[in-house]
Write a protein that binds this DNA or RNA. Structure first.
Length: 648
DNA sequence: ATAGGGTTAG
């Protein structure tokens, strides 16, 4: 009777593991009464762990410790460690590690493999590595290698993951499906992608649907969009994920129309888009350099009609979309209407205020959020940069000091960069320099970039050179840094030095990014390059531009030739300022937009000092509202002033 | 038995 009782219970538990919740007490009693052997415990633990009943599997381990009939063995620990890693229970996992060591089970491969995965899931990459290094070479199998590769991927160390993969191949271990699934996301180089595909087919895995999805995404990431599309088209069984990742890939590649077309086509083919596919479409819209406000509203409409607008991620993406289109009040309305908000939702709205120069609103929102969610390091970047853009110096410092003290968020290089920015805008260059020297972590290019950027507003040769020395080593490909330093020299009248930097840039073969401005007129967007004459009305545009320049000169505008093309004569320099893409776009807007519409411009680079100044005057003499979004933030020009306030 | 898992907002 009693034995049947135990068998019945176990049978029931194995068939439906979740039922153990209620049956745990009788099972516990039965296991102890019948002196259940280790193998029985192992089976139960294994079943529970693989059916996501992690607490229950761990409580059977506790029970095992109290029983006299069973001692854990090599098969007991792997599922237990898995349960610990799913529960992120580091202390318990560590005690399991101690226990199994005392039972001399450390040399078991499966246990070592489980430990590698456990430590990495609990955030201790170094411990994973320690376990791996402690294993004899011959004991490491595919699982061992794959676990360690996965550990590095989880910690974002993709290069290391790739070199481990190579080391694994070198030691004669053949990769399998899980190995490829871990390695494929590390690849962002087309050559490497081809190599990997060869290996996949060598292993006879090229028919695997999951792998093929991952491969399509890999080629999108490598920039081989057309090839990815070819693979996509050749796939016979495309599921929701296949479609979604392709839509998202187009979105990341700034190919809005292709993304939209695919989104429509999937519906036609009877695959109904879920929120992930929709996120891809919204991302395409956000990224779209030629994106208009009407386009944003259109995508918003699709979202509402798909009944997916209550999803937190979708809601957040829409808030971001309106922020990026310069529609802060609409963004805020959507934000307020969201029933569920995540950390990301809050940080999107806060950084939105920051980008638009509304430091006070950013701080107010941050105050409200503090009581509801624990801010992370990204929220603090948003808050600190909002303070620096709005010149809220005291609040910025208060925030910086409280982040670690009150929220346990240890400042990273980006946070220091914000503070350097804050000091720099206030003209406290010496303090900024000293602050960098006192940093407990090594300054990165964002920190040096902030210091150099401060010299744009407060030119200082020594400080600029100090910043540039480190910067040109760390970030030598970034043309903006060279131009910035050269402009600092120019504004100090050191033309020879300025030219030296320009030629250094040429010598190093650093490519200048071509700047452009996009303007929205009647739901359509028009793109202007420097000296652009491709517009059919360019003759007219240039004549209007001349007139406008005369008007703002009368109002007090003085051209700042520091921003002119470099190797020109002084008089030509002044004229070359007129062909900056931004001025062309503004004139185009003045000519073709109704008198009440706001002029909206989107630039891929930062707005230059001369254009910024000129735009202030244009807003004054024409009485127009001008909104410029550059690579960094927004500038609202109105009545001769700009929201950013501090720019030249 | 042990590893891994394709899309996901700042």
């Amino acid at each position: 009777m009693a034995v049947e009782d135990l068998h019945g219970l176990i049978h029931f538990v194995l068939k439906s593991p979740t039922s153990l919740q209620t049956l745990f007490k009788p099972l516990q009693a039965a296991l102890l009464r019948h002196h259940a052997p280790t193998s029985l415990y192992n089976t139960l633990i294994q079943t529970l762990s693989s059916s996501n009943s992690h607490s229950l599997s761990l409580s059977l381990y506790s029970l095992m410790l109290t029983s006299s009939s069973s001692v854990p063995d090599a098969l007991t620990f792997p599922p237990l460690l898995k349960s610990c890693s799913r529960l992120r229970d580091l202390p318990l996992g560590r005690s399991l590690h101690c226990h199994l060591s005392s039972l001399a089970l450390r040399s078991d491969v499966s246990i070592s493999n489980s430990l590698i995965s456990f430590y990495s899931r609990c955030g201790l990459l170094a411990s994973s590595r320690q376990v791996f290094d402690g294993m004899p070479r011959h004991a490491r199998n595919v699982v061992t290698w794959t676990s360690l590769i996965g550990a590095y991927v989880r910690h974002g160390q993709l290069e290391s993951a790739l070199s481990l993969f190579r080391a694994m191949l070198d030691s004669g271990i053949r990769p399998n499906r899980p190995t490829f699934l871990s390695v494929i996301p590390c690849v962002s180089d087309a050559k490497l992608a081809d190599d990997l595909c060869r290996l996949i087919s060598d292993e006879g895995l090229d028919g695997d649907g999951y792998l093929r999805n991952a491969v399509v995404r890999m080629y999108m990431r490598c920039g081989k969009i057309d090839y990815a599309r070819k693979l996509f088209d050749s796939m016979e069984e495309k599921d929701l994920v296949t479609w979604s990742l392709m839509v998202d890939g187009y979105g990341r590649a700034d190919m809005y129309f292709e993304a939209l077309e695919l989104f429509r086509e999937m519906k036609v083919r009877g695959i109904f888009p879920d929120y992930v596919a929709l996120l891809g479409l919204i991302r395409a819209c956000v990224n779209s350099t030629m994106g208009s406000l009407a386009q944003a509203r259109f995508v918003h409409g699709i979202t509402v009609r798909s009944l997916l607008d209550r999803n937190v991620m979708v809601g957040t993406a829409l808030v971001d979309l309106y922020v990026k289109r310069g529609r802060l009040r609409t963004a805020r309305r959507l934000f307020d209407r969201m029933e569920e908000k995540s950390l990301v939702t809050w940080s999107t709205m806060i950084s939105g205020y920051g980008m638009h120069g509304f430091g006070k609103d950013a701080l107010d929102l941050f105050d409200r959020m503090k009581d509801l969610v624990r801010p992370d390091h990204i929220v603090f970047v948003a808050v600190l940069s909002a303070c620096s853009h709005a010149g809220l110096i005291d609040q910025g410092w208060r925030c910086f000091y409280s982040m670690e003290r009150d929220f346990g968020v240890v400042p990273r290089a980006e946070h220091y960069a914000c503070m350097i920015d804050l000091l720099g805008r206030a003209g406290k260059l010496t303090e900024a320099q000293e602050f960098i020297e006192r940093m407990p972590i090594p300054p990165d290019s964002s920190v040096w970039g902030s210091l150099l950027g401060a010299c744009r507003i407060h030119p200082d040769e020594k400080v600029a050179e100090f910043a540039a020395r480190s910067l040109f080593e760390m970030d030598s490909e970034n043309s903006g840094r060279y131009i910035l330093l050269s402009n600092v020299y120019t504004s100090l009248g050191k033309i020879k030095e300025a030219n030296r930097i320009r030629s250094l840039m040429k010598r190093r073969g650093v490519k200048k990014t071509a700047g452009y401005s996009v303007i929205e007129v009647k739901n359509k967007t028009y793109k202007f390059l420097v000296g652009d004459e491709t517009n059919p009305n360019s003759g007219l545009i240039y004549r209007e531009l001349e007139k406008l320049m005369d008007r703002i000169r009368e109002a007090g505008y003085v051209p700042n030739t520091n921003f002119a093309l470099h190797d020109l004569e002084e008089e030509t320099k002044e004229r070359s300022l007129y062909v900056h893409s931004e001025k062309l776009a503004i004139v185009f807007g003045l000519m073709y937009l109704g008198p009440d519409s706001e002029i909206r411009i989107h630039k891929n680079l930062r707005v230059c000092g001369d254009c910024h100044n000129a735009t202030k005057f244009i807003s004054e003499v024409t009485g127009r509202e001008i909104l410029v979004r550059d690579s960094h933030r927004f500038h609202h020009f109105s009545g001769g002033r700009c929201s950013c306030g501090d720019y030249w």
